[in-house]
Design a protein around this nucleic acid. Structure first.
Length: 509
DNA sequence: GAGTTTGAAACT
DNA sequence: CAGTTTCAAACTC
């Protein structure tokens, strides 16, 4: 297979096969003990997806997989190419899969604006959920299996949560692609035949929130692109130009991702890390509060005072932390100065003499948030029938007092990747079928008892990220965390091992 | 809708 | 690693 080089001949940097890195192993191979055959069967010309990152990044990746359709596609393709497709659960007729389907499904028309609340990844899976209306099978397998979200999850429950995640991923993508009931084709055609403007217009209003990236130069293959960064393909609502972030360019996307990850293994990790408690080992209550979430790298705001969505922390609905290098931080969710308070930063009054109005302002915001959340809780219930996708787990903790247009923060999309994966596991059961935001909100109420030991130990990638390089903008591989304390290791290891089992979830033959 | 501002990402 | 440039979202008008 040949890589489509998304970059023009004159494009610097990327023009020279930026995707492959010598000495690196294919991700899936690395992650999947059963992948040897797969790799062996790879087309020689097929680009080798590299994965320089190790355990931790794998951890993220494993989680992310559920979100990354293109990865799933890649994985699926491997399965397809390999006769031993792990497909029992996944698919039976892989050969019929078209990548376009992957892309299309999300476009399935729907007036259900609720799905638009979760653009990005959510679009895909939410669409799935919508499709699920026509297909209980999808609904059941996809969501129940994911993260043990429902009682039926038992059927998929594996000793390793990671595997569950992968399973869910596989199922999600597979079901979506394969389900004959999906009826995506007509929809697809519809969109494909419609001019961008027309499509856009169509989506306006009903789904303005679905509007996504607007990239012009990045080809949607850089983190500038919200879709790409979120680990999803660009879809209909996008107004991007020269977009390569589409299933048809799967290889390019994968390769580019690898490249970016090689530079920053956590590039696709969730930006907002939950329960980044400074002392997770303590396991105190505070560590369970979403309020303890922090932006993984912290912001670097200079002028926005962390009060606008320019600020990733604010955008993510979390307070600034010591990782932040912001100036004049007034983050309503918790100022950097308040970071030592961590979990309560965004909720409690601080005795920051520096600015009373800020405190009150913060309080006001929190109240607003709380109110919003409560309202949303009520409002969302009607949608509880909508399957909650793992992707939704990666939403921000709180409903921001976002503006006017009611347009959800794009960054909420998904965060791409793994973010919520862990938390999702933690709260899956109770929140099955619930919208993400609610999910997050609720998860703080989950009794510790209900949190599987493993998850308790591994629930947050933050521990690794956080300790690695608090102030470095570009997160380096948190190697230090690759060697967790013995107590944690067991748990983490489970997940790490589970990830490789991605294809294995499906009994061979 | 066009233009500006902003800060992350990418690059040097 | 710091400084600069590029980029696209957020924001303003």
């Amino acid at each position: 297979m040949q890589i489509v080089n998304p970059f023009g001949p004159g494009e610097q940097n990327e023009k020279e096969d930026p995707f492959t890195q010598p000495g690196e192993t294919i991700e899936l191979t690395q992650m999947d003990p059963t992948h040897d055959n797969l790799a062996a069967n790879e087309d020689p010309d097929k680009i080798i997806i590299s994965n320089p990152s190790k355990a931790v990044s794998n951890l993220h990746r494993g989680m992310r997989r559920r979100c990354l359709d293109f990865e799933k596609v890649g994985a699926r393709r491997k399965n397809i190419e390999d006769g031993s497709s792990s497909g029992s659960v996944v698919v039976q007729s892989d050969e019929k899969i078209t990548y376009e389907n992957t892309q299309l499904v999300p476009f399935k028309p729907s007036s259900d604006s609720s799905r638009c609340i979760l653009p990005g990844i959510g679009l895909h899976l939410n669409a799935l959920a919508i499709n699920a209306k026509d297909s209980k099978k999808i609904k059941h397998e996809t969501f129940s299996s994911s993260v043990t979200l429902s009682g039926s999850a038992a059927s998929f429950h594996s000793p390793t949560s990671g595997q569950e995640l992968d399973e869910s991923l596989t199922l999600v993508s597979a079901e979506r692609d394969m389900d004959p009931n999906d009826n995506v084709v007509p929809f697809v055609e519809d969109f494909s035949q419609t001019s961008p403007k027309k499509k856009r217009r169509r989506l306006e209003g009903e789904a303005e929130a679905c509007k996504r990236c607007n990239c012009k130069k990045s080809k949607c293959l850089k983190l500038y692109c919200e879709c790409f960064a979120a680990g999803v393909y660009c879809i209909e609502p996008c107004a991007c130009q020269d977009c390569f972030n589409k299933p048809i360019h799967e290889d390019t996307v994968l390769a580019t991702r690898k490249q970016i990850e090689s530079r920053n293994p956590l590039a696709f990790a969730p930006k907002v890390i939950r329960s980044s408690e400074p002392a997770p080992e303590i396991g105190d209550e505070s560590s369970k509060t979403p309020a303890s979430a922090r932006h993984k790298r912290g912001c670097n705001c200079k002028k926005s005072s962390c009060l606008k969505k320019y600020c990733e922390c604010y955008q993510g609905g979390v307070g600034c932390s010591l990782n932040c290098r912001c100036e004049g931080c007034k983050n309503a969710f918790g100022r950097k100065d308040d970071f030592p308070n961590l979990g309560s930063a965004s909720v409690e009054m601080e005795d920051e003499p520096e600015d009373e109005t800020e405190a009150s302002e913060k309080n006001g915001v929190d109240k607003t948030l709380q109110k919003t959340e409560i309202q949303n809780n009520d409002e969302q219930h009607p949608h509880s029938a909508l399957p909650t996708t793992p992707l939704r787990f990666s939403r921000p903790l709180v409903q921001l007092p976002f503006s006017s247009k009611g347009k959800p923060p794009r960054s909420f999309l998904g965060v791409g990747s793994s973010s919520g994966l862990y938390t999702g596991q933690r709260y899956g059961k109770q929140n099955f079928l619930r919208p993400q935001w609610k999910f997050e909100k609720q998860f703080q109420n989950v009794p510790d008892d209900e949190i599987p030991e493993i998850l308790r130990e591994n629930h947050s990638p933050s521990s690794g990220i956080k300790t690695s390089s608090p102030n470095s903008k570009r997160v380096s591989p948190p190697q230090s965390n690759l060697e967790p304390s013995p107590g944690r290791r067991s748990g983490r290891k489970l997940i790490l091992q589970s990830i490789p089992s991605f294809p294995s979830l499906t009994p061979h033959h």
